[in-house]
Design a protein around this nucleic acid. Structure first.
Lengths: 114, 114
DNA sequence: AGAAAGGGTAACCTATTGGTTACGCGTTTG
DNA sequence: CAAACGCGTAACCAATAGGTTACCCTTTCT
């Protein structure tokens, strides 16, 4: 799976898919290489599990599979320093951190009820 | 740099180095492949910047270079879901999170003083 | 039904990679 | 100072990866 992100074209594809689902043709159209070449990159990504595909009519739509990225992050995490995590925390302060506290509070309530 | 972690031997080496500095010979000794083969993997890791080396007498000691892992994490982060970060937060609750809050408090104090 | 569109697979070629053995060079040791 | 140690590099070889063109299947349009 780590080998899947080794190739620059495949990394590009992953970044593109962050913007939403794309068909094979749309993806291939954005690269200077031939369509079959892109098709094989897509196969590698599929087999690595980083990407999922669905057939819709005569086209095949691709989208990210978030689960696998979590595995990558899990492997990477032990190499990171605490300060790295702090930066992430800063970035997500308003997003995650608050909702997290809110759910905490909710859980507290439940515990008291139970 | 992403290509550096594509190879399983190199990933193994990185994991080994998490335990501290190791000489080239110590690293090579833990693999079934020949020493020159390992030596070239080490060169790839060196050139990728994930690893630093220092010559000590007639041996060459290797250690992780944390900075590059941060870059990897930065690339990976946009692919992760908020829930992933929450898990990390749980794992680091006592480590980072508390000291973070403590420093926050300290900064607050400074602001009031200034 | 036939033509066109979307897209994967096969066969093929070249460049890269990862392994091996042979070798060279600086550092330690007897 | 010579022998031994630690380790990188060079030359070579087989396997893999990534590109290309040619081909085939399925779905849509007329």
């Amino acid at each position: 799976m780590a080998a899947a992100i080794a190739d620059p074209v495949r990394r590009q594809i992953l970044v593109m898919l962050r913007g939403g689902r794309l068909s094979a043709g749309q993806i291939a159209g954005r690269f200077p290489i031939s369509r079959p070449a892109v098709s094989r990159h897509l196969r590698v990504l599929r087999q690595s599990g980083l990407v999922r595909d669905e057939l819709v009519g005569r086209q095949r739509l691709y989208e990210l599979d978030a689960g696998r990225f979590t595995e990558l992050a899990a492997w990477l995490a032990p190499f990171l320093q605490p300060s790295d995590w702090e930066h992430r925390l800063d970035a997500l302060e308003t997003e995650v951190y608050r909702t997290r506290r809110e759910r905490r509070a909710a859980d507290q309530t439940k515990e008291n009820t139970a």
